[in-house]
């Protein structure tokens, strides 16, 4: 079996019923997707499979042989964050950070497929994603604002980020 992960075509040797999550984390060392409940209930493992968000813990790898998989690692780099990632920084939308990879992947797909900044619609799009720090307000604010992509991030001397909002707050 082969899958393309963030642009790299990789051979998969795990048994066919292994979950995509375990293939990514344990075999391919792509550890952005998190193993939370591993039963489809938390959304921390969500990745894009052929462009659509999918729970990697619910996906047998043999069912997606040949597919293109995008994880949070494929959406931006530390020195080149995507608009959603920038917004998450700006709004402090990550507390412990465990749910963040799934949230960012789902929010990116929501916005890329024309999602609005309506709070209720964002809530519905992220409904399957649990934040046990209960940081939902900041997450929803970040997704709404990311629609404009209006952030100016600079890297601090310590390697962190500071942000300046350059557009109008929504």
């Amino acid at each position: 079996m082969n899958i393309t992960v963030n642009g790299d075509e990789l051979e998969v040797r795990s048994p066919g019923l292994t979950s995509l999550l375990r293939v990514l984390r344990d075999e391919l060392d792509v550890v952005g997707p998190k193993a939370g409940c591993e039963a489809g209930g938390c959304g921390a493992c969500t990745v894009l499979v052929d462009g659509a968000p999918r729970r990697s813990c619910l996906t047998a790898v043999a069912a997606i042989d040949g597919a293109e998989v995008t994880t949070v690692e494929g959406l931006g780099a530390a020195d080149d964050l995507s608009p959603v990632q920038q917004a998450f920084v700006h709004y402090y939308a990550a507390q412990c950070g465990f749910c963040t990879p799934g949230m960012v992947v789902a929010a990116t797909h929501y916005l890329d497929s024309g999602g609005s900044d309506d709070r209720k619609e964002i809530q519905e799009a992220l409904r399957g994603h649990v934040c046990r720090c209960t940081g939902y307000v900041k997450i929803i604010e970040a997704v709404a604002a990311a629609r404009g992509g209006n952030f100016d991030l600079t890297t601090t001397a310590e390697g962190g980020y500071t942000t300046v909002m350059t557009g109008d707050a929504k």
């Binding site: 019923l17 979950s19 591993e38 489809g40 813990c57 619910l58 996906t59 069912a63």
Partner: peptide, 12 residues
């Protein structure tokens, strides 16, 4: 294994 939403976690 249909969609996998029930069976894959049971196998995992």
């Amino acid at each position: 294994i249909g969609g996998g939403t029930i069976m894959v976690p049971l196998v995992t």
